[in-house]
Design a protein around this nucleic acid. Structure first.
Length: 508
RNA sequence: CGGGCUGUGGCUCAGCUUGGUAGAGCGCCUGGUUCGGGACCAGGAGGCCGUGGGUUCAAAUCCCACCAGCCCGACCA
C-alpha cells in the first residue's frame, strides 16, 4: 500500500504471494479491526463489530427458537472451582490469566503497585463450565428441573503466545451454551442439535460449507467425552474450526455437584453439554470469501448491503444528485431481503475521485450503486456487485434495480456459497497411500512454501501414535471424523483395519 | 515460552557501518485546476527517532537492559 507504483489490486501482497500478510492487510483495509496497545488484544472497529452483531442476532434467534435462554455469569472464576475437573484445568492452565491482587498503591518510587493479595486467586474465564456448573448445582434438585438450556454472550481470555487478529487473540468474544439433561441420550441429542444449528448458520448466513463430525481423542475439548466440530477450508487450503459442540458426559456435573433425584428416586449426576462460536468467524469470513481487492461479504451478514455513491462532478448538479440518492435510499429501505429490511447507506462524504468506491470495495459491501447527473436524466443507476470483477458495472433503470434487489442479494449469497463449495470440493482429496499423503502435504518450495495441501480423506487405524507422528512430520492433524457411512479399509500408515476415512489437514 | 528479524511524523520506509540532535513517498490541512473516479499543481501542519540506563564535548546512529510487533516452533476458538 506504500508502494507508489500503480497497483492492479487494492490489497498487496496478493493471496498467492503471501496469504498471512494478505489476511492482515484485508483486516486493516476493510477496517474490521486493528491491534491495540494491549498485547494480544484487538480493537474491533464498527464494520467488524457490525458483522459480529449480525452473527449474534442470527444465532441468538436460532438459540431462542430451540428453547435456549440467555443469562450472564461472572468473568472471574475462583481458582478452586476451576481446578475441580482435572483434565479441564490441565488443558487450560497454560493460558489462564489470574487475578491475584486488588487495590493499587503508590510505592516509594512513585509507581502504582498492587497492594493487597487475594486470599484465593481468581481465574479470568477462558470458558465457563465450572462457574456455571456451580450455579447449576444449586438449581438442579429433581429431574423436573431439567433440562437447563442456557446461553451466555461474553468475552473470554486465553493468554495466547501468538496473537493474530480475530483468529487468535488474548481476549475474544463468543457465545457459550451450557445445558444439563436428565439422560445421556438427551445430552447427546442436544450436542448434535447444536452442531446442526451451527452448520445451518454458517451455510445460510456466512456462505461457508463445512465438514461436520467428531474430534479425535487428542483434539477434543479438555474434559469432554466427545467434541463435535465444523471444519471449513479457507483459501490457503488450511482448515479452520468454525464452532464446537461438546458432550461432557457427567464429568463436569460430578466436579460441580450437579445432582438430581431421578424418576426412580435415586441421586444421579446431570448430563451436560457446552458449545460455542467466536469472533474468529469474522476472520474466517475474510479468509473464505476475500479476494485481492479486499473483503467480500455475504449479503446476509454484511452490516450494509447496498451503498449508494453519489457522483457529483459539477457543483450545480450536486444538490440534485444527493437528493436523488436520498430518495432512492428511502425506496430501497422499504424492501426486504429474507426476513430483514435491506440496509442501505448513502456515502455523502466529500471525498474526491474513486477513493470512496475503493473503500467500499475493500470493505466488501455486496452492492455498490452509483448515481450521477447523467443517470438522473435517464432515471438509471450504475450497479456493481462485489462478487463480480471490481471494474464491472451494469447500468439499469432505477425501478428495474429496485425490483431486482432482493434477488440480486440472494444471487450474491448463493454465488459465494457455490464458489466456496467448489473450492472445498476441489481441494478435498481421497488419499490411498502414505506416500501420496506426504506428497500432498509437502510444499514444493520448502523455503517459502506455496499454497498447497487441502483436506485429505484417508483411512486411519484410530491410534494416537499415528496422529502424533503425522503431526510432528507434517503439522497435519485429524480435523474431523465425519458422520455417516464410510467404506471400511486399511490405515494408510499402518495397513491395519480402519472403519472409516477421516479428514486430515493443516489448520489454524 | 524458545529461535530469527524489526521498532524513525497517521502509514510504508531511508538515514545508523564511518556519532555532530532528521528525510522521502503516501495520508492529513489550505487554495486552485480537475472530475463517472483511487487525478494534478502550489503552499502548510505534524517527529522528546519504542522505553530506560551507559559511553562521549556531542547519540536515531555505539554498548547494555527492558518493552512491543512480525515470522518460524510448542499451544489453542
Amino acid at each position: 500500500m506504500s508502494n507508489p507504483a500503480p497497483q492492479k489490486t487494492a490489497i498487496s501482497p496478493r493471496r498467492e504471494e503471501d496469504f498471512p500478510e494478505w489476511y492482515q492487510q484485508v483486516v486493516r483495509a476493510a477496517e474490521l479491526a486493528e491491534p491495540s496497545d494491549v498485547r494480544g488484544c484487538m480493537v474491533i472497529r464498527p464494520w467488524g463489530y457490525g458483522i459480529w452483531e449480525n452473527m449474534q442476532r442470527r444465532l441468538d434467534a436460532m438459540f431462542r427458537a430451540t428453547g435456549h435462554r440467555n443469562a450472564y455469569f461472572p468473568l472471574f472464576i475462583p481458582l478452586s472451582y476451576f481446578a475441580k475437573e482435572a483434565e479441564h484445568v490441565e488443558g487450560f492452565a497454560k493460558e489462564c490469566a489470574v487475578v491475584t491482587h486488588t487495590r493499587l498503591e503508590v510505592d516509594a518510587e512513585g509507581k502504582m503497585k498492587p497492594a493487597s493479595a487475594l486470599t484465593e486467586p481468581l481465574v479470568v474465564r477462558p470458558t465457563s463450565e465450572t462457574i456455571i456448573g456451580a450455579s447449576y448445582a444449586k438449581w438442579v434438585q429433581s429431574y423436573r428441573d431439567l433440562p437447563i438450556l442456557i446461553n451466555q454472550w461474553a468475552n473470554v481470555v486465553r493468554w495466547e503466545m501468538r496473537p493474530r487478529l480475530f483468529l487468535r487473540t488474548t481476549e475474544f468474544l463468543w457465545q457459550e451454551g451450557h445445558t444439563v439433561h436428565e439422560t445421556e441420550a438427551e445430552a447427546r441429542a442436544e450436542t448434535k442439535l447444536i452442531l446442526d444449528l451451527y452448520e445451518r448458520f454458517v451455510r445460510d448466513h456466512l456462505a461457508i460449507p463445512v465438514f461436520t463430525g467428531a474430534k479425535s481423542e487428542s483434539e477434543k475439548f479438555p474434559g469432554a467425552v466427545q467434541t463435535l466440530t465444523l471444519e471449513a477450508i479457507v483459501q490457503d487450503r488450511k482448515a479452520i474450526q468454525a464452532g464446537t459442540s461438546h458432550f461432557l458426559g457427567q464429568n463436569f456435573s460430578r466436579a460441580s455437584g450437579i445432582q438430581f433425584q431421578n424418576r426412580e428416586g435415586k441421586q444421579e449426576f446431570g448430563w451436560t453439554t457446552s458449545w460455542g462460536m467466536t469472533t474468529r468467524l469474522v476472520g474466517t469470513l475474510a479468509m473464505m470469501h476475500g479476494d485481492d481487492d479486499g473483503l467480500v461479504l455475504p449479503p446476509r451478514i454484511a452490516p450494509t448491503q447496498i451503498v449508494i455513491l453519489p457522483i457529483t462532478p459539477k457543483e450545480e448538479t450536486r444538490a440534485r444528485v444527493l437528493e436523488a440518492c436520498d430518495a432512492f435510499q428511502l425506496q430501497l429501505r422499504g424492501k426486504q431481503f429474507g426476513d430483514s429490511p435491506i440496509e442501505v447507506e448513502v456515502d455523502r462524504r466529500d471525498l474526491g475521485g474513486g477513493v470512496k468506491n475503493w473503500e467500499w470495495i475493500k470493505k466488501g459491501v455486496p452492492v455498490r450503486v452509483e448515481i450521477g447527473p447523467r443517470d438522473l436524466e435517464t432515471d438509471s443507476v450504475a450497479v456493481s456487485r462485489r462478487d463480480h470483477p471490481v471494474k464491472s458495472k451494469e447500468s439499469m433503470s432505477l425501478q428495474e434495480f429496485a425490483a431486482a434487489v432482493p434477488e440480486m442479494l440472494m444471487s450474491i449469497q448463493q454465488n459465494l456459497y457455490d464458489r466456496a463449495k467448489k473450492f472445498q470440493e476441489e481441494n478435498t482429496r481421497v488419499i490411498e497411500s502414505k506416500k501420496e499423503f506426504y506428497d500432498f502435504f509437502t510444499a514444493k518450495n520448502a523455503d517459502k512454501p506455496e499454497i498447497h495441501g487441502g483436506f485429505a480423506l484417508a483411512h486411519w487405524n484410530g491410534s494416537r501414535e499415528v496422529e502424533e507422528q503425522i503431526k510432528s512430520d507434517l503439522k497435519v492433524t485429524i480435523r474431523v471424523i465425519p458422520f455417516g457411512e464410510s467404506e471400511p479399509g486399511r490405515c494408510i500408515f499402518t495397513r491395519e483395519p480402519s472403519a472409516r476415512r477421516v479428514v486430515w489437514a493443516k489448520s489454524y
